[in-house]
């Protein structure tokens, strides 16, 4: 083969590998989704995952939202001052948090915490033959391990986003009233008057989609983990990276769908 074709062949191989990976993830996602509605169900596992994924992520999401809300208020105030628009701080903080930063930052923080944990746990189960043991005990690993995690993350993330939205707006309120001289009652009134139900709902829908993606990536990479500590480590990294990229990409697509269509 001519050396000129070398890079072209490499590009072709990479493209085929990428398409293959996309196909495998799509099949895995379809299979996991189809199992959500088919028995047997594992409600105890679901409750355990709701606790792990939802409840235990609350501090991380809450702190992220609080500081983001505060920083956003300072930035909007400083930027708005350039054209005498400091008064829009409550509105921009609210819309910025509930439409974009709440779901996206919440999703990314949960991706870091949950996708990594799921991939590491399932990957370790794979290399220690616990997945094979599940099969020999007549239990479908996809149904027993993946479905409760995916369902729990899809349910938890919108709730986390809702709580994060409230904390984020509160962070902006606290900074605006204590540092920027805003009137507390007027700030809250402006926020409530400005927000539309769809602003909040669109953020919660994004949260559900991000939750699904985070758990899906954790389960997929865990199940396909290589051997040994290195294999599990790589699966964990891949889970976090792919979940984060998918969150950002799907956020753009959903924003396009919700607000420009």
């Amino acid at each position: 083969m001519s050396p000129l074709f070398g890079p072209l062949a490499g590009l072709g191989r990479s493209t085929l590998a990428l398409l293959g990976a996309v196909g495998r993830v799509a099949i895995y996602a379809g299979s996991a989704t189809s199992h959500i509605l088919r028995p047997p169900f594992y409600p105890r596992e679901l409750l355990r995952q709701l606790l792990h994924i939802g409840w235990l992520s609350l501090p991380v999401v809450g702190l992220t939202a609080f500081f983001t809300g505060g920083a956003l208020a300072l930035q909007i105030y400083a930027g708005g001052a350039r054209f005498n628009a400091e008064a829009v701080v409550p509105q921009i903080v609210a819309i910025g948090i509930v439409r974009e930063l709440g779901p996206v930052l919440g999703g990314l923080m949960v991706a870091g915490r949950v996708a990594a944990a799921i991939a590491a746990e399932i990957g370790t189960m794979k290399v220690t033959e616990q997945i094979d043991a599940l099969v020999t005990l007549s239990t479908n690993p996809l149904k027993y391990l993946a479905v409760p995690r995916i369902l729990a993350a899809t349910i938890s993330l919108p709730i986390l986003v809702a709580v994060g939205d409230a904390i984020g707006v509160f962070g902006g309120y606290l900074v605006s009233t204590s540092r920027l001289g805003f009137n507390a009652a007027a700030y809250l009134q402006n926020t409530v008057d400005f927000l539309q139900p769809w602003d909040v709902t669109s953020g919660l829908i994004k949260g559900a989609v991000f939750g699904f993606l985070v758990a899906l990536m954790g389960c997929y990479h865990g199940m396909n983990s290589g051997r040994g500590a290195q294999g599990v480590g790589r699966a964990t990294t891949n889970a976090v990276v792919s979940a984060s990229i998918l969150i950002l990409a799907s956020n753009y697509l959903l924003t396009e769908l919700f607000f420009t269509a």
């Binding site: 033959e129 616990q130 094979d132 020999t136 005990l137 239990t139």
Partner: peptide
């Protein structure tokens, strides 16, 4: 079938009795 795995392959998220009774608790 029953199988004893090389490393035990016990489920470390559950206590011993639930490992032993795994098949008897579901399915």
């Amino acid at each position: 079938f029953g199988m004893l795995f090389q490393g035990g392959a016990l489920f470390d998220s559950m206590p011993v009795w639930q490992n032993v009774a795994f098949r008897l608790l579901r399915g």
